[in-house]
């Protein structure tokens, strides 16, 4: 049971739900940028929600199947095609041995998730198949997929095709996208005017937007509360004594362009962070294209937890819908 990669696309990687437990050694949590989409894709083809699939960025791969399989594509609107015939997204469809899966142009979003019945069965590294190229961990030989790769699949009892997730059970960012942030961490380093300006300004996704982090531009530079820099922190007012970075934390080197740290981010460093994007909104970031307008919205812990519960309920609704 395997797939043959004819063309890899722009940046296609094997991802599951990640590799928690090694962050204290600088090994990131990894896993799909839009975990909701990966979970739903797996549900559609009858896999466990955490099975490994392919994360596709902007441009789809071309894949030939050696065996019959059930496939679902979720996340970004990147229309899948079987031997050139367009298939619906967020729907399980059949593909026969010898047929080829390819993709039309991206219509919206940034990352599509391909789940295949049986799941990708590459050897796990530290408990996960997620690809972390910097550490040469996971995936196929620790790297993104390339033309000519043969990717092993797990054994499976195929379920029927045709399962579908309607639009009201999908979650995609708006335009402008709104990202909710809980201030904290080194928030006190900013002046009250900078704190206010950060949430009032219009931002847009910059070109440097990948699995490590998303950079934003367009807002005013942030001013810092004046102080003598603490010993060991470094001279720039945005420097701190190197500490851990929270998943979703927002660093602003030099006070200029905010960067939201994502699944493959460095685990720590010497830049102040002003808080973190709430857990409920992290999946949305994975669907943002460069230049997308973005507003940051300030929330408190109660609102963050309510949003988290709403997201959990949505996943439960999808499970209930799919039976």
């Amino acid at each position: 049971m395997s797939l043959k990669i004819m063309q890899p696309g722009l940046s296609t990687s094997i991802q599951d739900l990640g590799r928690p437990g090694y962050f204290h050694l600088g090994i990131p949590i990894g896993g799909a940028m839009d975990r909701f989409a990966l979970r739903v894709a797996n549900m559609l083809v009858g896999n466990p929600e955490g099975a490994a699939g392919l994360e596709v960025v902007f441009m789809g791969p071309v894949i030939t199947f050696e065996n019959d399989a059930l496939v679902a594509v979720t996340g970004a609107d990147l229309p899948p095609k079987v031997d050139g015939v367009v298939q619906p997204g967020w729907t399980a469809f059949e593909i026969k041995a010898g047929q080829t899966l390819s993709f039309d142009f991206l219509k919206s979003g940034a990352r599509a998730y391909i789940a295949i019945s049986g799941g990708i069965d590459t050897p796990p590294a530290l408990g996960s198949r997620s690809t972390y190229p910097i550490g040469a961990l996971g995936g196929l030989d620790g790297r993104n997929i390339q033309a000519g790769d043969v990717i092993p699949l797990g054994e499976v009892d195929m379920i029927e095709p045709g399962l579908h997730v309607p639009a009201d059970l999908r979650r995609l960012p708006g335009n402008p996208a709104e990202l909710r942030i809980l201030p904290g961490l080194y928030w006190h380093r900013l002046t009250p005017a900078a704190q206010e300006g950060f949430f009032a300004d219009d931002w847009a996704v910059a070109l440097e937007a990948d699995r490590m982090g998303y950079r934003f531009k367009g807002g005013k530079p942030l001013e810092f509360v004046e102080r003598e820099q603490p010993f060991g922190a470094g001279a720039d007012p945005s420097n701190i004594v190197d500490g851990c970075y929270s998943y979703g934390s927002v660093q602003v080197p030099g006070g200029l362009e905010p960067i939201v740290l994502h699944r493959d981010a460095v685990s720590g460093g010497g830049y102040f962070t002003l808080g973190a994007v709430i857990s409920a909104d992290m999946d949305l970031i994975g669907q943002l294209q460069p230049h997308t307008p973005v507003r940051f919205k300030k929330v408190d812990m109660e609102e963050a937890l309510a949003a988290r519960a709403a997201r959990k309920k949505m996943l439960a609704d999808v499970r209930a819908h799919l039976g």
Binding site: L182, L185, P230, A276, S279
Partner: peptide
């Protein structure tokens, strides 16, 4: 003591290194 989003607690013993 502070929060890093809704999934982290961050504890800074001191703002300078020693």
């Amino acid at each position: 003591y502070t929060y890093g989003g809704d999934e982290h607690i961050y504890v800074e013993m001191d703002d300078e290194m020693s």
